[in-house]
Amino acid sequence: MTKYEDQGKNDTRSGYGAGMTELGRTNPNVVALCADLVGSLKIQTFIDENPERFFQVGIAEANMMGIAAGLTIGGKIPFTGTFANFSTGRVYDQIRQSIAYSGKNVKICASHAGITLGEDGATHQILEDIGLMKMLPGMVVINPCDYNQTKAATIAIAEYEGPVYLRFGRPKVANFTPVDQKFEIGKALMLSEGTDVTIVATGHLVWESLIAAEALEAQGISAEVINIHTIKPLDSEAVLKSVKKTGCIVTAEEHNYLGGLGESIAGMLATQHPTPQEFVATQDTFGESGTPAQLMEKYGLNNKAIEKAVLKVLTRK
């Protein structure tokens, strides 16, 4: 299988910050909003370099979403910033009416997504946001896997006209995608070809999938690993092509199995190519306090869980 090197652990939110720094220098229409979490979103450089293009709204996320919608009317490209929980569930109706239904070019950028936010616990962890956002007509949903990909995605969505939900995380994780890799919205990336099973992963679970694939290879199982950074629109073609070869699939995500990537893929496969599938995801539960590694272990979201799911799905072929 194709081997990937960790270029040095980094957090995906810093990828967002780096992307914003670049956009600040290259696209004069990009503006940033933040609800009192500048440090967490890593956008201080953007603010220092473009103070007039930064809007600090305070702890008032609903107002932030409305202001972002209004800014688009004057031709601006607003990037809102807060934690994923406060970027989605807290402001769902504002996003629904003022952004999605109104067709506004707002980029909803959400840090600290999933359970790896860690010690703050379930009030701040969200495992439902992908589902909430993918259900909104016209909303693009992206969950990049590492620092480089988050930076590339941040830059790419500025060029796309329409509402986007960009989801990233808090902990430092392996940074392994090529630094110059072009980010194409809606285009899955083949990471490692295989013949026995397809593993489709998004976000932090992509690296875990590569580790699992290596362990499986040692057991004589050839796993194909695909990075789906864009959950909506889904790259159905890439998934179909792979499962027609392997005959079974494991989906892996840091999200509830209800409403997540796995559900999107299951729905697509049910109508186009029914395939045995196992879900690596949380099982309709809230999270809790703990270190990211402890939580990934407890809630079955690491490479071991992926390996186990593969062994199970292989018996269902």
Binding site: M64, G66, G70, L71, G74, S98
Partner: peptide, 21 residues
């Protein structure tokens, strides 16, 4: 220029448009 109906959202939008101006 914006959908409205679900109440309470219009002032935020107007502020955004004013700041863009």
């Amino acid at each position: 220029r914006i959908a409205s109906g679900s109440l309470g959202q219009g002032m935020s939008v107007a502020i955004g448009a004013a700041q863009a101006k």
